[in-house]
Computed example of a mutant assay.
Amino acid sequence: MSEAALRPTGLRRRAEELAAALPPLLVAAEHLAAAVQLGEHGRRRAGMGDEFWQFRPAHAGDEARMIDWRRSARADVHFVREKEWQAAQSVQIWLDDARSMEFTGAKDRPTKGDRARLLALALSVLMIRAGERVGLADASAPPRPGEVQLMRLAQTFTAPPGEADFGAPVARAFLPHARAVFLSDFLGDPAPVEAALTEAADRGVKGALVQILDPVEEAFPFDGRTIFESMAGSLTYETRKAGDLRDRYLQRIAERKDRLDRLARATGWLFLCHHTGDSPQSALLWLYRALERVR
């Protein structure tokens, strides 16, 4: 870091630049998380812990010390006092920061990257406030609990996009038996995605693939002379009859979605295709429930 950046004026400018991007995303994520009325966190189940969860009738094999004699005195059967399972789980997120994620087909719709960032941070809010550890799939932000970790994640999610046209997940930092979420358009080479999921599955990691697409990418409403250019500008294709490409394009996008779905099922993951024109609340609710299902 330069000396100028360390001076009071430089520090203030950098702080203001960070503050300009950070609060809106964090506020939006917290608002979205609050809108998802999930009640008690789904991890509530019997196990080691300090908080009372429920009474249940005693079964053969239960130790005498487990019986709650005061509750049992009010009935004709013995009751066991169960406590809540409190072993925190780790959730690791890969958020595609490639240039393709900065596409939107309409000015009144968010980019795919904006929707992915919102979902990633809102999910982090839900998980961390339920006592879980959340981090990134690479080694830059290991899973940790607490509000400070939320700020770290928000900073990471608001960083400028990368230079590549399409992103590829990294699975080298996955913790054994953690849960994971990949958020991307998955329009690049599928081989790195398959390799990452295979490696994750070998470590006992299960999770959810969320493909985020703009409605334009599903409808292909182009006709006549059209120039297609990647967001990074490295790929360009010009045609005078774009309409002739529609059927082949729609077939390819359907094949890609089916390939991702089959890959997810083969590795014990779940798959969702979410459109930026749809409510983020429904996608967040699906994500939350998906992580409970893949325990």
Rank of each mutant, 00 (worst) to 15 (best):
S279I: 10
L6P: 01
V205H: 03
H177F: 14
F186C: 04
A208S: 15
D50Q: 11
L38T: 06
A139L: 05
P221L: 14
Q37N: 07
V27I: 10
R179P: 00
P176E: 10
L250D: 01
L95F: 12
A178K: 00
A168I: 13
F182N: 01
L95I: 13
R133S: 07
L260R: 04
L25G: 05
T198I: 03
L26I: 03
G131I: 06
R203S: 03
P161N: 02
W269F: 07
S90V: 02
L291G: 02
F52D: 00
L209W: 03
T198L: 10
R81E: 13
L6I: 01
D223W: 15
L38A: 13
P145S: 12
E163H: 14
A154F: 14
A196R: 04
A264D: 05
E163T: 14
L245C: 10
Y249R: 01
F157N: 03
A64Y: 10
M1P: 04
P160R: 15
I253L: 03
V148W: 07
L270G: 02
L153C: 06
A208I: 08
A139D: 14
F271I: 03
D189T: 12
H274I: 01
W53I: 00
Q149N: 09
L175W: 08
A64I: 06
Q86C: 04
M66R: 15
P142L: 06
P23D: 09
D214G: 04
R259P: 00
R70F: 13
W286Y: 15
H78Q: 14
L18M: 09
T104N: 09
A242P: 03
P24A: 06
H275G: 05
G277H: 10
H59D: 05
M231H: 08
V148L: 10
G188T: 12
A106V: 09
G47Q: 10
G39S: 06
T239E: 00
R12N: 06
L175V: 15
D223V: 07
A154C: 07
V170Y: 08
A254D: 12
H31M: 14
R74V: 14
R7W: 08
F186V: 08
A116W: 07
L26A: 09
E84T: 13
E51I: 11
A201R: 01
G61I: 15
D68R: 04
G113V: 03
S234Y: 05
A191D: 11
L187W: 04
L272I: 03
M1H: 05
T9K: 10
G135A: 05
V91W: 05
H275L: 09
R246K: 15
I67R: 00
R262Q: 12
L187D: 09
I128H: 02
P169H: 11
A60P: 01
R295Q: 13
V216Y: 09
S124Q: 04
L121C: 07
R99V: 04
E132G: 08
E255P: 00
K107L: 13
G277C: 05
P145N: 09
A164Q: 13
L197V: 06
M66P: 00
R81F: 13
V80F: 09
E199I: 03
R203G: 01
T156R: 15
A171V: 09
A196L: 04
A141F: 07
E229L: 06
F220E: 01
A29W: 10
G188F: 08
D76F: 07
I67T: 02
T236D: 00
D114G: 02
L6W: 12
V193K: 02
A154H: 09
R14I: 11
P143V: 05
E17I: 13
W69T: 10
A87H: 08
